[in-house]
Simulated assay, not measured.
Amino acid sequence: MNNNERAIDVLQELNQFVNDRIEGYERAAKNTHDPAHQSYYKDLMNQSRQFSNEINSSISSLGGTTQNNTTAKGKIFRGWMDVKSTVTGNDEEALIKSNITGEEWAQKAYNDALDHRTELPQNVVQLVEKQKQASMATCERLRQMEKAAD
């Protein structure tokens, strides 16, 4: 497998998670009773769509097929799907906790992708690092929301 093929594989796997993230925040936006939270979750949905587009653009530039699936692939994706399935529509704190867990899974997915940094073009490494930083900031904000919901 050459570096382009490996990079495409890494990015396709990462993008499956990003697509699951879109679904997770879509669900959170529908289930929350807090208008401010709903607005934030919709922003995160849009951010995730932008992330997916950026990753797909990188995949295309490397000669690969874009990834639009939300199929659970590997432990990361199954874990996120399990978390999403336990969300209840009437418990704000459980919803926030689920989103925190999802972002923790996201960071694992970004770290897994970055474990292959030597096989990735520098611009792709920078893209993945930028998205990971955004995920970390989201996780921090969600933890603040959780404290406020206590």
Rank of each mutant, 00 (worst) to 15 (best):
D9L: 13
V10S: 02
L11N: 07
N15Y: 00
Q16D: 05
F17Q: 07
V18D: 01
G24M: 15
G24A: 14
R27G: 06
A28R: 04
K30G: 08
H33D: 10
H33C: 05
H33R: 11
H33E: 10
Q38R: 12
Q38M: 09
Q38N: 06
S39L: 12
S39K: 14
S39G: 07
Y40G: 04
Y41P: 02
Y41S: 07
D43E: 13
D43S: 11
L44S: 10
L44I: 14
Q47H: 01
S48T: 01
S48N: 00
F51T: 02
N53E: 09
N53A: 02
E54Y: 01
I59Y: 00
S60K: 13
L62F: 03
G63T: 00
G63Y: 09
G64L: 06
N68L: 15
T71Q: 12
A72T: 03
G74N: 02
G74S: 05
K75S: 15
I76K: 08
F77C: 10
R78T: 12
G79Y: 02
W80V: 08
W80C: 06
M81H: 10
D82R: 01
S85C: 03
T88P: 05
T88R: 02
N90W: 10
N90I: 09
D91E: 05
E92T: 14
E92A: 10
